Simulated assay, not measured.
Amino acid sequence: MAQNPAYNSALSGNPQSATARTYPNGNPALGYNPPGARHTDSAVPLHRKTAVVHDYACDGPAPGNLAFRWTYGSNVAARNRDPRVQVVQYNEDTFVLRQNVCVHWEAPFTYLLFGNAGALLIDTGATANAQAYPLRETVDAILARWCQARGRKSVPLTVALTSGEDAAQNQGLVQFAGRPDTTIVPKPLALMKRFYGLDASWPSGSGRIDLGGRVIGVIPTPGTHRDGVSFHDPYCDFLFTGDLLFPGKINIGNDRDFVASLERLRDFVRQQPVKWLLGGHVEMMFVPGKYYPRFATYKPYERVLEMTPDLIDEALAHAREIQGKDMMLIRPDFVLFNGVSPDQKTKVWPEGVPDINPPRPF
């Protein structure tokens, strides 16, 4: 039976409704837009007169979304066609970037945060070559888009590292050399301390980076590296921990400093709200205690990036257990290596960690 597409006002209301109002979305036979309507970018208000200024003071963490899957590489890295830099917008002022695992097997994360007066890039990845790893080009595109949405011509950029010694996080720094309106936190330990005002107090005390209403805290956390620092974002309640604590193989450089830094973070999260710890890498699988070997470029069963703050207490307890010992220790969400090779293996599966074999990828 042929249907009549003509609009029938008698059928437009709910027959059970006492008011019998017409269908709230209007005439279904008409087009979506009235004549003359143009498609516009809803994120860019027309006829803007002043720049947008955000109030970053809020009760609880700012909303955002990390519910997605990272690209996981290929068995043959040369054939991989995924983006060299994967970009995820957590919210309007927070971006998470990851280097393609086929460009560098460690696939490090970098983080881009915006405030009213500036932007902060945390870490710069494992590859200096801008053609293989176009980090600056990607960051510049995000900055330009953000400025367009906020009615600004430009925004100053600060580039900081969780460790200037970590080759998996500092190689892309050269791409920002000479970039206009850019401040690069010095890599040498003494200069880095001076930049944050920590000359006399290191490794105690704390520094700050003011982005304009969004003040990022800087916490000294040596242990895996002599110059390690973590960053706290009170807007999203994130704690960026770099190589100190992440879902992967944690290579302890100085176990005394490592324990002290975890104690410092434990005390910090007891005083400040922290939603997630976001580290520099993901090497663990989604099954407890299992991890990918070094140089793997195909990681289809990765654990999620974010870690809950209670894992600081777990890491601290086991760091104390292996302090002064040359050994590895497997936990469900990370593996500690103290004084041994990151390729060290054990035939004894630890108690309290379910021994589950991950599915075999094909």
Score class of each variant (00 low, 15 high):
2 A>T: 12
4 N>W: 08
9 S>V: 11
11 L>F: 12
11 L>Y: 12
16 Q>D: 13
24 P>H: 11
26 G>D: 14
32 Y>K: 15
38 R>C: 12
39 H>S: 12
42 S>F: 14
44 V>L: 11
46 L>R: 15
49 K>W: 12
50 T>P: 04
50 T>D: 13
56 Y>R: 07
60 G>Y: 09
62 A>G: 04
64 G>C: 06
67 A>Y: 09
70 W>S: 08
72 Y>T: 13
77 A>P: 05
97 L>V: 03
99 Q>C: 02
102 C>S: 14
103 V>R: 05
109 F>M: 00
118 G>S: 10
118 G>L: 11
129 N>S: 11
130 A>G: 09
133 Y>R: 02
133 Y>T: 01
135 L>E: 03
137 E>F: 06
143 L>G: 00
148 Q>A: 10
151 G>W: 08
156 P>L: 05
160 A>D: 04
160 A>Y: 01
163 S>D: 04
178 G>H: 04
188 P>H: 11
189 L>I: 04
191 L>A: 14
192 M>F: 06
196 Y>C: 05
198 L>S: 09
201 S>R: 12
203 P>R: 05
206 S>T: 09
213 G>Y: 05
219 I>T: 09
222 P>F: 10
224 T>W: 03
227 D>G: 08
228 G>M: 01
230 S>V: 07
235 Y>Q: 03
239 L>M: 03
242 G>P: 01
247 P>L: 12
253 G>F: 12
260 A>C: 08
260 A>S: 15
261 S>F: 06
265 L>S: 02
267 D>Y: 05
268 F>A: 01
297 T>K: 09
299 K>C: 07
311 L>D: 03
312 I>Q: 01
313 D>S: 13
315 A>R: 00
317 A>W: 12
331 R>S: 07
331 R>W: 03
336 L>R: 01
344 Q>C: 10
350 P>N: 07
357 N>T: 11
361 P>G: 06
